[in-house]
Amino acid sequence: MSIERIERRQGAALVAPAMLWTLAFFLLPFLAMIWMSLSHLEGREVVSGPGLENYQRIFTDPSLRRGIWVSLQISAVVTVISVILAWPLAWIIATRVPEKWRRLALLLAVLPFWTSYVVRSYSWALVLGENGLIMQSLIGAGLLEAPIQIMATRSATIIGFVHFFTMLLTLTIYSNLVQLPPNYARAAEDLGASRWQVIRLVILPLTLPGMVTGAFLTFVLCIGDYITPQILGGNSELTLPQLIMLQLGRRGDYPMASALAVVLMVLVTLAYAACARWLRMERV
């Protein structure tokens, strides 16, 4: 047996566990979910597919269609706001905070990750409520006469998300910023660029990979999240994961839940394709 053949076999043997794992715990369940999405509910019984009834309903039922639209809107807004907030924070930590304090600054930045996600959402419910800290402070300062409703609105959901994802994005952008050689900025300044031009024309483009990685993660985690809109959104409108949970918990409609989950996966895949192609994420 040639050495090349032996090496090929050894390589296959090394890859095999990972392949089997992916096959057993991703590919097969995914195929099962697609098959289930092609089935349908008759009365209270699941009738095996194949059929496209569920997909037709998703795109013709206004409530389901709106769920997709609401999820896309919230995820897009959260991603944009989080990037806008995270980039300066990451830049300050990477360039303005003395090196000996950077670790502490990062630790403080990721502090929200230490708390349970559910507890954090309920905490925001208390902060954003009519009798919560924000409203009472604004009323106390004379900026408001009466409380306005934030809790149980889309704004509350977005605030809850942004609080969490700004931290995530700060980490990805920070890791990108600290890898940039300081000579780039110095060279630009030597060539007459102002500080703002250095940031805009040199540093910002070079941090795009980190920014897009974080933005993609934010979008994916946000569009698939059930807890935050459920607790903070007050069911004033339903997102895609909430609609999926309704099908599972209330109707026992596993085919429709699967179809909605497939739509969710398609949206995530499209987001990935857009990011990967546009900004060449393989560089990250």
Binding site: A125, G129, N131, Q230, I231, G234, S236
Partner: peptide, 17 residues
């Protein structure tokens, strides 16, 4: 103002929401 499950309803009533 809101639609909530048991815990959410309790919280909303208890906090004056």
């Amino acid at each position: 103002k809101l639609v909530a499950d048991v815990v959410g309803s309790q919280t909303a009533l208890a906090t004056g929401e």
